[in-house]
Design a protein around this nucleic acid. Sequence first.
DNA 1: ACCTGCGGATGACAGGTGTCACGGGCAACG
DNA 2: CGTTGCCCGTGACACCTGTCATCCGCAGGT
Lengths: 208, 208
Amino acid sequence: MVSPIRLLLADDQALVRGALAALLALEPDLLVVAEVGRADDVVAAAVGNHADVCLLDIEMPGSSEVPDGIAAAAALRRDAPGVRSLMVTTFGRPGYLRRALEAGASGFVVKDTPAPELADAVRRVHAGLRVVDPLLAGESLAGGANPLTEREAEVLRVALDGVPVARIAERVHLSAGTVRNYLSSAIGKTGTATRVEAARLARDRGWI
Amino acid sequence: MVSPIRLLLADDQALVRGALAALLALEPDLLVVAEVGRADDVVAAAVGNHADVCLLDIEMPGSSEVPDGIAAAAALRRDAPGVRSLMVTTFGRPGYLRRALEAGASGFVVKDTPAPELADAVRRVHAGLRVVDPLLAGESLAGGANPLTEREAEVLRVALDGVPVARIAERVHLSAGTVRNYLSSAIGKTGTATRVEAARLARDRGWI
DNA sequence: ACCTGCGGATGACAGGTGTCACGGGCAACG
DNA sequence: CGTTGCCCGTGACACCTGTCATCCGCAGGT
């Protein structure tokens, strides 16, 4: 008998975490050795429990250095290179996929893939293969590269919740005029009409 | 040996659905008899499989008559009064809770409750008790009643994604000036500064 | 018939927003 | 060195938005 694949589950929703653990426990060659609910707890738990593969949700609370699951994958590659990351996320946004792969994730599945395929994905990732939803991979290529500058992205992140320009300006420590210039530029690049539309499109594309 | 509680799982994310099924299968007195991924499939599957309790996600695709899990709960009460509904949702928005209870749901738990409590909640609901997250119940009362008129709510729903007033107007078949009046009124009632902020607050309160 | 309330619309106004042109500073690159 | 590109800012302009007062039509009450 070979030793089982050691898994870490990272998802902020305890119910989903527990349910995934129950699902994966049905596979004799898989062993869940740790569960965490925050992105900044991933590395320590992975190292401490000698995990082989980490299942990471993207939308997760965390610290400013490790704010989400993608950052956790990057931190794993840096601090625990032997551990592989498999993103398991709700939103199949093309930019999420691209950013996750850039961060060093070995796989990417969305939460509406059939349950039986998850264990297979884990085994593939553990074997050193890449696992990517083929439909999503196509969309990701069609989406194109991020045309936004860092400042434009920063301003758009704040613009997401619809606050007035003045408040965006004080949050990012810029003048209101400068913020309007960045927003105008971003609106032009995204082909939208308002800053909120631009921000939402940029988010769906994974540009911010 | 008493007969087990017969469950229906409704969640659009197949992975979560399967994982919940695995989790609940660990309980000897529970039996998952059906799984669906759309709100408008709930009633038929519940009746056809003689379900006792339905676990319903709120954010689910559906038809125009039964667009989400809350509508599914209402449909169940109308067409299958013996079946009880337990909402299992990601977002603990106070208005969701209120609307779910008005729709006839017997319970409401959020997805970050600990996994072991889910089976307990199912048993309580099956026994005829109400199960409500106590923290959420407090927020719901604090949130207060919906101060918006039907038109204000309708306009805010479209305003959610940040489109300009002109496009809102054509979508709801009103003049642009009238839309601005409703938006202004809604902004005043919500104490916000822009239509997008007002729309987001109204959504979080469950007013739209 | 009268008043009242409400949905819808209009017009006017101040202030916010999107666009553009332009300026200076700075780092990277040929 | 000059050029390029991004950063940050300013000022001006047209347009959009949020606010307010006002009006019309229509249904309910009395």
